[in-house]
Design a protein around this nucleic acid. Structure first.
Length: 582
RNA sequence: GUCCUCAUAGCUCAACUGGAUAGAGCGUCAGCUUGCGGAGCUGAAGGUUGGAGGUUCAAGUCCUCCUGGGGACACCA
């Protein structure tokens, strides 16, 4: 059930019928201030402008028609709203009726964790390309952002009934392997060392760049090793496989701690055999042309720079792989959306890629979306450099967070020890780290701030988790099983303003989740959950459950159970877990 | 040089994409424990939304110009 859609439909019908306007565009919003009701629309003002009339008058006419229409309609607005008013500039404000709110609360309690889940996706496929670390390089904070945002987007699409394919498009092919293989052989010769670490691979890469400047022969030798790898030279190929195997197993450890899953692990190398075909098709279709020995897609007439898809030495590029990937995904999965969660630095590249894909007809009927995010800058406000060793290691961040959380917990809750402490500390720390990326969606570059990333105070994930913990604690104190709270609770006993405020919050959840997808703005969920948490904490400080009369206590337990469920669900969509104690 | 993007409280960020009195956290100051967990709650101070014009019932949001930060601009990924 979506209240916003219901209002919109009904107003649309009135406008279409009474004012003879089809597809009239207006908005249904939640007003900033609760005194303006639960929902508001600017329809009257927009209509008044068009007809050069008084918005207040038009507003009253619309309300009048809505009230008259209700007799014939199966859905009656009066079931939802206690009043509908026109005010000042011409807003029409809708106030939800208490009975309706209580019915919704009962619905949440009956439906369990399904509240807000819909089937609007109807099983259609969405491909989400995210994380994508490079083999033989350590994952860093940049990958963290893509990983966290991408996995949350996947969860929201699934929740709304889409078939989601999360693909980890690993950087497992390219020139860096020539360099690393060359350095490896120089150090170990032709032996396979199983106990390599990603850190060692990365330092060989860094070392190469240092020495390349002194010994000019390095570049050529690295290129020769790369050529051998491309020609599937036995040893080089085995070495490459080893690098991949070790890197992937290290990445998987991080993903496990972060609670991130992928449906596919198709690295760039997977598409190697399809690249020639893509270039030939582009040339044959006269979409591409040769220029200075290379193959380019002319895009000037679309206001974009030309796009290179094959080098003059016949080698392929990242762009070629991406085109092959789009083609492959289209043929294999036929998605309605192809979503790339990648830093905004690559915006121009993706514009070129998407246009080229369109010209080649690789992605017909597919929406290509670049979900971009700002750069992560060092504390000094400048881009962090791997070479300077400024990039914070992911494990350092995670471990630092866990130890910080553990320290705080032993202080706040000394009863919590052993495994309980360990697992709760991990949940809280990972939650805080994820929240740092999810609570801001703006494209502003983000300064990497150790304290902020691991913040455990209000305005962070632990603040939200704490509401869940507090509610669970009430249940255990009062001796009720959270899951088996009786169903026939007398919700009519609820009605005080702080109780109704909470129910109003709960009812908003489905609309919030739905809105997330239109712009892929996950911070809408964080904003919502913070409001819910704040209203809960306010209720908690002012109204006791334990000390209230028995039936009222049970009714309030019902309310709090619903709050806990929505909180858990909301956090789940963000990829954040909820501990029972912390 | 061209294009993209950002600029909001001392700091870090919001503001439902044109709506009503621009909001949170941190920090500062003042309160709240004979109450279900104080990782909490209540209140105060803090703003010419970088600057100047424009568009309209309405502009932090849209258009133009300026200033400043960041990014991208074919043989890297």
């Amino acid at each position: 059930m979506n209240i916003e859609n219901t209002i919109k439909d009904q107003i649309n019908q009135v406008i279409e019928k009474e004012y003879c306007l089809k597809d009239f565009k207006f908005q249904i919003e939640e007003p900033k201030d609760k005194i303006y009701g639960d929902y508001t629309t600017n329809a009257a003002m927009l209509l008044a402008k068009k007809r050069k009339s008084d918005p207040i008058k038009i507003g009253n006419e619309i309300i009048d028609k809505l009230n008259k229409a209700k007799k014939k309609k199966s859905v009656q607005l009066s079931e939802y709203f206690s009043k509908i008013r026109v005010v000042k500039p011409g807003f029409i404000n809708f106030y939800l009726a208490d009975d309706f709110l209580k019915n919704e609360l009962a619905h949440i309690l009956d439906n369990g964790d399904e509240y807000g889940r819909t089937n609007e996706g109807n099983g259609r496929t969405i491909v989400v390309d995210y994380s994508a670390p490079n083999i033989a390089k350590k994952m860093h904070v940049g990958h963290l952002r893509s990983t966290i945002i991408g996995s949350s987007i996947c969860r929201v699409y699934s929740f709304l009934g889409y078939r989601v394919i999360g693909d980890n498009h690993l950087g497992d092919w390219g020139t860096q392997f020539g360099k690393i293989i060359f350095m490896y052989k120089r150090k170990y010769g032709e032996v396979i060392k199983d106990d390599m670490t990603v850190g060692e691979m990365e330092s060989m890469y860094v070392d190469f760049h240092k020495k390349e400047k002194i010994d000019l022969g390095f570049a050529g030798k690295a290129r020769a090793e790369l050529k051998k790898l491309q020609n599937k030279d036995k040893f080089n190929y085995r070495l490459w496989q080893l690098f991949c195997k070790i890197s992937i197993s290290e990445f998987k450890k991080i993903y496990k701690v972060l609670d991130v899953d992928f449906d596919l692990w198709r690295g760039e190398s997977f598409y190697n055999d399809m690249l020639q075909e893509v270039v030939e098709a582009a040339l044959n279709g006269r979409i591409a042309k040769r220029s200075e020995g290379a193959v380019v897609i002319p895009l000037k007439k679309y206001g974009l720079p030309d796009f290179l898809i094959q080098k003059s030495d016949e080698a392929f590029l990242y762009s070629t792989t991406d085109l092959a990937t789009i083609k492959y995904r289209h043929e294999k999965y036929n998605p309605i959306k192809n979503i790339y969660v990648v830093a905004s630095q690559q915006e121009l590249y993706f514009k070129q890629l998407f246009k080229t894909s369109e010209l080649l007809g690789l992605s017909s009927n597919e929406e290509m979306i670049h979900v971009k995010f700002g750069l992560i800058l060092g504390a000094n406000g400048r881009k962090m450099s791997t070479r300077e060793g400024e990039v914070a290691d992911l494990w350092d961040i995670i471990n630092e967070g866990i130890s910080k959380a553990k320290k705080l917990m032993t202080k706040k809750n000394p009863d919590l020890t052993g495994d309980g402490l360990e697992s709760a500390a991990a949940i809280v720390a990972i939650g805080a780290i994820k929240y740092n990326d999810l609570s801001q969606n703006r494209l502003t570059d983000v300064k990497f701030d150790w304290d902020k990333m691991l913040a455990l105070e209000s305005g962070s994930a632990p603040y939200l988790q704490y509401t869940y913990v507090r509610i669970k604690s009430i249940f255990s104190r009062i001796g009720f099983e959270f899951d088996s709270l009786q169903k026939n609770i007398d919700l009519s006993l609820l009605g005080r303003s702080n109780e109704m405020i909470l129910i109003r919050d709960l009812v908003r959840f489905p609309g919030i989740v739905k809105r997330v997808l239109s712009e892929h703005r996950l911070n809408l969920i964080t904003i919502y959950l913070e409001e819910l948490a704040k209203d809960f904490h306010n209720f908690y400080e002012n109204s006791s459950v334990l000390r209230s009369e028995k039936n009222l206590a049970v009714a309030r337990l019902g309310l709090l159970k619903a709050v806990a469920r929505i909180m858990k669900n909301g956090l789940f969509l963000l990829g954040i877990d909820t501990p029972d104690r912390m």
